[in-house]
């Protein structure tokens, strides 16, 4: 149930980001979701791609620093308050969300929300069908 998220260290400098997207494009890697956590001097780019293993490989070849992190993804209804139930469920189990981002992907039923927690297995156990929360599996996300 874990999703492999790619994190890349990027300097806040002109041309750094396009260098990365160019490499991915040339290797036929599709970016499903992307977000950047930025500071004054650098950013950490986080992505969900269709082929994470290959992405890590080709990014490494460019000399950039890349890491794979396990995250979880859930589908939430694309309407006001749609995310609250998921967050409350985690909250009730005492699971702290480190960061979160959402995207409307190929999934037509709603928005896909990527959640990073300290211990993803705990979160998977906490969520799930019995709480009426739809966890997204990697396969369907990468397709």
């Amino acid at each position: 149930m874990f999703i492999k998220q790619i994190s890349v260290f990027i300097e806040n400098k002109l041309g750094k980001l396009s260098k990365l997207t160019d490499v991915l494009g040339k290797n036929d890697i599709d970016i499903c979701a992307l977000t950047i956590a930025d500071t004054t001097d650098f950013g950490v780019l986080r992505m969900i791609v269709n082929d994470p293993d290959k992405a890590v490989e080709v990014i490494k070849e460019t000399g950039m620093i890349v890491k794979c992190t396990d995250v979880i993804a859930v589908t939430v209804e694309d309407k006001p308050g749609g995310l609250t139930h998921t967050l409350e469920t985690l909250e009730n189990k005492g699971i702290n969300v480190e960061y979160i981002y959402a995207f409307i992907g190929k999934n037509k039923e709603g928005a896909t929300v990527v959640i990073k927690v300290d211990n993803p297995q705990e979160a998977v156990d906490a969520l799930g069908p019995e709480n009426n929360i739809e966890l997204v599996d990697a396969e369907s996300l990468y397709r």
């Binding site: 998220q5 994190s7 260290f9």
Partner: peptide
Amino acid sequence: MSEDIFSDDVKSI
């Protein structure tokens, strides 16, 4: 930056 010190977490960087 090196793999040894890089982390997905901005706070730790």
